[in-house]
Design a protein around this nucleic acid. Structure first.
Lengths: 367, 367
DNA sequence: TTGTACGCGTTATCAA
DNA sequence: TTGATAACGCGTACAA
């Protein structure tokens, strides 16, 4: 007989299933059964076991169980590099919704950050290939790949949240950004707006493509064209949306013929943009109308209150998590599903009328 | 010989240490050693093993390792019930800082939410007693306790973040809220303010006690007293800071003698409060000066830009995580340590001068 | 309905 | 420096 370890078990978690079994006067297998499948054990012994569990404060060891059953109960959420990338407001909300759903289903949530460096990719792959996680929720446009391992080939279910990756056969839960922008733009056009200013997030991004696309579609419907919209932003070096908005304000100020309607791709951008152009002398909405994206609560308290296309984070997080869990539990993986959740414009005073007979006067700022 | 399982290993994680050993022509124990302690193995075989690992894309199974070594590499962060409780802005920041530090140290971060119900407490305790986690970071004022188990007795290191629990012998990393409010209040008093309005978060809360305490201390220093400050807020039924701010504006409007200085305990409250009282006809800062807490970036873009006491989330998260890891790794647990990180007032235009000869005129709103 | 016995994949001990 | 081997704590096939 050998003494390997000093400590017979995990720190402070002294109680083993064997202890429970001893106290209840049964075998460990009976305890295991009583816990996992109470129906398949005599009611009386089940009660005795339950009492012993209670008395000892027994909690099954997760590592041992995971090892034995060959699967974990941890879900990983992969967040884009910086938590506040343009969209500082929405990540926490989605995280909360996801976490709630995860817990409610008996799983645990682990966070991973996908920066653009190899070490964070490797870290994620270790989690996946090391069996730590059972499934992954991705909020980033690229699946991590290092050397001969890639998340797609880890053999675990993946669901993309916010970004549509269904054409890469990653089931996705997204909003109908394109349509939402199209509808919002139609409203602006109906109010007489014909010259647009678009403040992009990281350009080429799925969201950027969809949103800009929706804007252009609405323009074309109305006989306008892509040349009637001026793009700003899209610079990856601006990490905070606020900075992008400030830069956009400078871009705006430099234009000869001012657009009258602005579509910003995040509330942060819109807030700093509006603040800055107001400082420069333009009035919102008399001179410039603004709408943005995300539906941050703070928009209601801007001056004027900011119109924003609400991202239904609660529903998105919940739907994505439920889809992932379904994929984890039914091996019947049905491939490239795609769930679209509608977002809607919350219309507030930042939208103004530009028609010739509009109730509110237009003007050109002095400077 | 019996066939227990259909699948010989974890889903999609087919490669075992035994496979690596076979390919490299060594025993598994040598592989294990080469990975954990490269110095204690012949350089040539180490290289052969490394090549085999690379070729097979081998990743060690975490559950098996955790089981064997009796400890996990997961840190849990316990967030207060609702992610946006008054302080919607700071949780994501702290989460990011914590996560970065956790990953960099080779650990993983798991999220837990401490709602006020028993199931979430039980969930947290299962994580702790089940050996899933190795240490915990707490952002909630109470340690979970259910029946005969309590987090404090799980035998794992705990560090409190933001809330001072060092008197309950939980090492804590906090800001010097009391002093920060005292200093800010002194500045307001120096500008002639003598009547204050305080918008509380959850009252009785550690933060509330500290912040209100700091305010009162400054008043007393100046020969004023607690009766010169009117409290609002503190209502637990208001989940969002924004709602608290709106309610506070109504409270403010109902006062006979208006205070001239407002201290809000979160930026959200201050933003909606300011917006609302401006709508009602008061001017900021001519009639009312406002300072708040958190240092949210958005404050810079309010009208007028909002003064706010910045919470150094980066440093807090980093310090707390490093402390926790130190406690996890050195069993030399030194008990009730306490790290205080200074917060500072970012002074902006929301603070005005109320002295008789002040450059800016006061006035009373018409209504 | 319950007990016996084995193995999940890894690390650590000991002997070679 | 390396290899054989015994655990870590649990779940499950099988026998009783």
């Amino acid at each position: 007989m050998k003494k390997y370890d000093e400590k017979p078990s995990l720190e402070g978690v002294g109680t083993l299933m064997a202890d429970v079994a001893r106290l209840a006067g049964v075998a460990t297998s009976t305890v295991s059964r009583a816990l996992a499948n109470p129906g398949r054990v005599n009611e009386k012994t089940r009660a005795r076991i339950a009492a012993a569990v209670e008395q000892l404060g027994y909690t099954p060891n997760a590592a041992a169980r995971n090892l034995r059953v060959g699967k974990s109960n941890v879900i990983m959420i992969v967040l884009p590099g910086s938590l506040h990338y343009g969209a500082s407001q929405i990540i926490p909300q989605v995280l909360e919704a996801v976490n709630r759903t995860v817990i409610r289903s008996g799983y645990n949530l682990m966070i991973a950050n996908l920066d653009r460096d190899e070490s964070s990719e490797r870290h994620i792959l270790d989690l996946a290939f090391g069996g730590t996680i059972r499934g992954a929720l991705i909020l980033s446009s690229q699946l991590p790949v290092v050397a001969n391992r890639s998340l797609g080939e880890a053999g675990l279910p993946i669901v993309s949240l916010l970004l549509d990756m269904s054409d890469s056969s990653v089931p996705s839960v997204v909003t109908n950004d394109r349509q939402a922008v199209r509808d919002a733009t139609r409203q602006l056009i109906a109010l007489g707006h014909t010259r647009f200013f678009y403040i992009a997030g990281p350009s080429g991004n799925y969201h950027d493509v969809e949103r800009f696309g929706g804007l252009v579609e609405a323009l074309q419907e109305a006989g306008l064209s892509e040349s009637d919209v001026i793009r700003s932003g899209g610079d990856l070096s601006y990490q905070f949306g606020f900075q992008t908005g400030l830069q956009a304000a400078d871009d705006f100020a430099a234009l000869e013929r001012k657009p009258t309607a602005v579509v910003a791709t995040s509330d942060d951008m819109a807030i700093s943009f509006m603040s800055q152009i107001q400082k420069m002398g333009w009035r919102v909405p008399q001179d410039v109308s603004i709408i943005s994206f995300d539906g941050s609560p703070v928009c209601a308290f801007c001056a004027p209150p900011l119109s924003t296309i609400e991202q239904p984070m609660e529903q998105l997080g919940k739907a994505a998590t439920e889809l992932l869990i379904a994929l984890m539990e039914n091996s019947g993986h049905d491939g490239n599903s795609r769930i679209v959740i509608p977002s809607r414009l919350i219309r507030r005073e930042s939208i103004g009328d530009q028609r010739p007979n509009a109730p509110m006067p237009r003007r050109t700022p002095s400077s």
